[in-house]
Computed example of a mutant assay.
Amino acid sequence: MNVMTSIDSSLYLQNRPLERVPSPELGKDEFLQILMTQLQNQDPTSPMDESQFISQMSTFSQLEQTMNMANSIEKLVQQQNVSPILQYSHMIGKEVTYNTYDEETGEVVDSISGVIKAVSQDEGRAVMMLENETKIYADSIVELRNPEAGSDSEGSD
């Protein structure tokens, strides 16, 4: 039988982190832990002042509400990153007008209208497929209307 008479410090000292990196954030778990430690170690003959305790609980409540609000805002931001297909799908069946441009001068050559039959995406941009099989980018649309409203000649030159 082998009896250990001394502890080899190299076995446990090598495995510990060389430097403790403190967290810059104080979360609700850490706050509760500090509060509980404070309550456990208070002097029974001189307990914590009620107003001090209420102040700390109020601080904890504010911290929790702030964290909940931050989580809600983060979820809202994530929901705003909606696919262009979903973002523009309400335009299917609508009549649009878009401009065509002269490649050399950049001037408007013509305004063309068509009804959107499908929406897709190309490199994060919404692409509208018109009934005449023309594909246009959503940002090139200059007017959007219901097809039945397009029969009026209002606004035409």
Rank of each mutant, 00 (worst) to 15 (best):
3 V>K: 11
4 M>N: 12
6 S>R: 12
6 S>F: 13
7 I>L: 15
13 L>A: 10
18 L>G: 15
22 P>N: 11
24 P>I: 06
29 D>F: 07
29 D>Y: 06
38 Q>R: 11
47 P>F: 06
48 M>A: 03
48 M>S: 03
48 M>K: 02
51 S>R: 11
51 S>D: 13
53 F>L: 10
53 F>Y: 12
55 S>V: 02
59 T>S: 11
63 L>W: 02
64 E>F: 04
66 T>S: 10
66 T>L: 13
72 S>W: 05
76 L>I: 09
77 V>P: 01
78 Q>L: 10
81 N>F: 07
82 V>F: 04
86 L>K: 15
87 Q>W: 07
91 M>H: 05
98 Y>I: 01
100 T>F: 04
103 E>A: 13
103 E>L: 14
105 T>F: 03
108 V>K: 04
108 V>R: 03
109 V>P: 01
114 G>V: 01
115 V>D: 00
115 V>C: 03
118 A>E: 10
120 S>I: 07
120 S>M: 10
121 Q>F: 02
124 G>A: 03
124 G>W: 04
125 R>F: 09
128 M>T: 00
129 M>H: 07
131 E>K: 07
137 Y>A: 07
138 A>L: 02
139 D>A: 05
143 E>I: 09
145 R>N: 06
145 R>A: 08
149 A>H: 08
149 A>K: 10
154 E>T: 15
154 E>Y: 14
156 S>I: 15
